[in-house]
Design a protein around this nucleic acid. Structure first.
Length: 420
RNA sequence: GCGGUUGUGGCGAAGUGGUUAACGCACCGGAUUGUGAUUCCGGCACUCGUGGGUUCAAUUCCCAUCAGCCGCCCCA
């Protein structure tokens, strides 16, 4: 084969795209109920936006971006995530001046990261992202988390685990980070090579290392929760109270770290339990990013949001055997015999479709038997048989496929007959 | 960026250094000249991911490369 799909991408074929349409519609409906409005931004942005927004020490920026130069010499990047774009648009369109605050936005669209593909990780993948900017009320943290949980719940997913943590403000984070380095550094050689690399890069990650989980220094390591200042502590307590009030189960994990630089205070992940799901169990990641709008050039504005992958959602639905209520099949299939009937087909099909019916007919010049077989395969409720006999009586033979019963119906009663 | 594993028709899957590359499913045609099941009969791979090498001869051996899958890192 001469041409192949690019690595880490996929064609979503009709059988799958039905599911996509279903979950996308669910997302739109749910966001509407929560009063979040859709925003559509370009799939590429100035490279600098991501370097600045996502953080130039992150893996995403350092080694995963699709960056290219356009003919005008501008450095552009296919978006690796959606928050930076949403914030850019917030600032550029001066949304901080909008009458309704906070500004509550969502988007669904493809993101791009240059990584080695594996289960649940593609180079092009689709995220549903939700962002609320302008409020630092802990109630909106709970709202955003609740939206994500509702989305999964309404689609029928079970065995979900909500994990939350507080990363504190910038000062708390720096202090904690230094404490961690001090804690591990003297004996870092006792740890795996990954952890040794993590020490300077991201010491927090040492805490959830699978290799060294039983090392005695793990238990005694300083917890971020002990480094929160009073405001951060009170804020985190409020978020937990609201989640509790909303009857949303969660657990606090002081080792939960998010990989993007912009997070502070509330951080959360929604994970899935269960066999056969592969190594990647995080379905949703999100958190608060109070410094980001300012970083991008806007006024000081708090924000919180999350992103979830639709591919991973579909995988989860698949492994849990959730069947989505997707309609399929035709209302009717038109079978014709003879040239005269064949010539009358377009007019009849067009009329039926104009009445809102899902119908199809033969374009492969098949014999009657073949046409019947096609109708059966396509799950048609009715077969409309049109031959010389029917034409001469200005009628159509309507066969109910399930029962096999059939009767001759005058042409102008066909629509009513099928609709009921 | 690193590691493991796989690559034969639309799909699944055998196979061998040398004559027509099994079989199953699907599909197409016929038996049934106006009817979807089943059954029976027939059809359906100038070719074994791609490129190169070894050989009289390669789908089979060697090398490279690309891709899929799984994992590490990281992330949604």
């Amino acid at each position: 084969m001469k041409y192949k799909i690019p690595r880490g991408t996929q064609d979503i074929l009709p059988e799958q795209s039905k599911k996509w349409q279903y979950i996308e519609k669910k997302a739109h409906d749910l966001c509407k109920r929560y009063n979040y409005q859709e925003i559509r931004t370009p799939v590429f942005e100035q490279t600098e936006l991501f370097a600045r927004g996502v953080g130039d020490t992150t893996d995403i920026v350092q080694k995963e971006m699709y960056t290219f130069e356009d003919r005008g010499g501008r450095s552009l990047t296919l978006r690796p995530e959606g928050t930076a774009s949403a914030v850019r648009s917030f600032v550029e369109n001066k949304m901080h001046g909008w009458a309704n605050q906070p500004v509550k936005l969502y988007y669904i669209g493809p993101m791009f990261r240059y990584e080695r593909p594996q289960s649940g990780r593609m180079r092009q993948f689709v995220q549903l992202g939700v962002e609320a900017m302008g409020s630092d009320d802990p109630a909106i943290d709970a709202e955003v988390i609740g939206l994500a949980m509702d989305f999964y719940r309404e689609l029928g997913l079970t065995n979900l685990k909500l994990v939350i943590n507080s990363l504190g403000d910038k000062e708390s984070r720096t202090n904690h980070r230094n404490a961690l380095i001090e804690h591990f550094k003297p004996r870092i050689t006792e740890f795996c090579s990954d952890c040794q690399a993590r020490l300077e890069k991201n010491p927090l990650r040492i805490l959830d290392c699978k290799v060294d989980r039983d090392h005695e220094l793990m238990e005694s390591a300083p917890s971020i929760l002990d480094y929160l200042n009073d405001d951060s502590k009170a804020y985190f307590a409020k978020v937990q109270k609201f989640l509790h009030d909303m009857n949303i189960a969660f657990e606090v994990d002081a080792t939960l770290v998010r990989g993007l630089d912009y997070y502070n205070n509330t951080a959360f992940e929604i994970m899935i339990d269960g066999e056969g799901f592969g190594a990647i169990t995080t379905l949703t990641g999100g958190g608060r990013y109070n410094g980001l709008v300012e970083e991008i050039g806007g006024p000081t504005t708090p924000g919180i949001g999350f992103a979830l992958s639709l591919e991973r959602l579909l995988m989860a639905l698949e492994t849990q055997g959730v069947v989505l209520p997707i309609e399929q099949g035709l209302d009717a299939y038109l079978v014709t015999m003879g040239d005269e009937a064949k010539n009358a087909a377009p007019k009849l099909l067009h009329k039926l479709r104009g009445e809102g019916l899902t119908v199809d007919g033969d374009y492969m010049d098949k014999k009657m038997k073949g046409q019947m077989k096609t109708a059966d395969r396509q799950n048609a409720d009715f077969v409309l048989i049109l031959g010389e006999e029917e034409l001469s009586k200005n009628s159509v033979m309507i066969k109910t496929m399930e029962t096999g019963h059939q009767e001759l119906v005058p042409m102008d009663e066909v629509v009513d007959r099928i609709k009921k």
